[in-house]
């Protein structure tokens, strides 16, 4: 299915909650979703037989000042089409519903986004740090992150 057609289907279903943004090539067109609707949109994308997005390629946390965001790259193996979803939340209350129950691959991706950016995925069954140690402080990939001076008695800077 063409990207425009997917966007039409989504806007018909969800109205004002989604905003398609077509960008010039080579940048991929994406669709902006309100944070609290992301679970419904994703469930619709997976279960609709014409869309059938059964493969989540990538879930990325981003920090585009001043907001935090989550980018979903979805792919349909059957129809061979792709879509990019984006959602932005304020850095003070970064709450996004989890899509872990839709695609199991989202489990570790969301844990990583929590680890690196501190995005709180509501409803995730085990939202703990995955790469950094469990007692690490701060969210390293935020743009205003400062490397700690010391960790467990070991000096960190060169």
């Amino acid at each position: 299915m063409q990207t425009e057609k997917i966007f039409d289907t989504l806007t018909k279903k969800f109205g004002n909650d989604v905003t398609p943004i077509l960008e010039a090539a080579p940048s991929e067109p994406f669709i902006l979703v309100k944070a609290d609707k992301i679970y419904d949109v994703c469930l619709f994308l997976r279960d609709n037989s014409e869309l059938d997005f059964d493969y989540m390629m990538c879930l990325t946390g981003v920090h585009q000042k001043p907001d935090l965001g989550v980018v979903y790259h979805l792919y349909s193996i059957k129809h061979k089409h792709k879509i990019v979803l984006k959602t932005f939340v304020s850095i003070d209350a970064p709450n996004v519903p989890t899509v872990e129950r839709i695609w199991r691959s989202a489990d570790w991706h969301e844990r990583e986004a929590w680890d690196m950016y501190g995005i709180n995925f509501e409803g995730h069954h085990n939202l703990i740090r995955i790469l950094c140690p469990y007692d690490w402080e701060g969210f390293p990939l935020r743009k205003d992150y400062v490397t700690p001076e010391e960790y467990h008695g070991m000096r960190v800077p060169y």
């Binding site: 790469l131 950094c132 390293p140 070991m154 960190v156 800077p157």
Partner: peptide, 20 residues
């Protein structure tokens, strides 16, 4: 030996095992 290519921004890299 010294952190190698990760010496500058490696917030999670020990800069040289001789520190421990």
């Amino acid at each position: 030996n010294s952190g190698g290519p990760y010496w500058e921004h490696g917030y999670h890299v020990l800069k040289g095992v001789d520190r421990i």
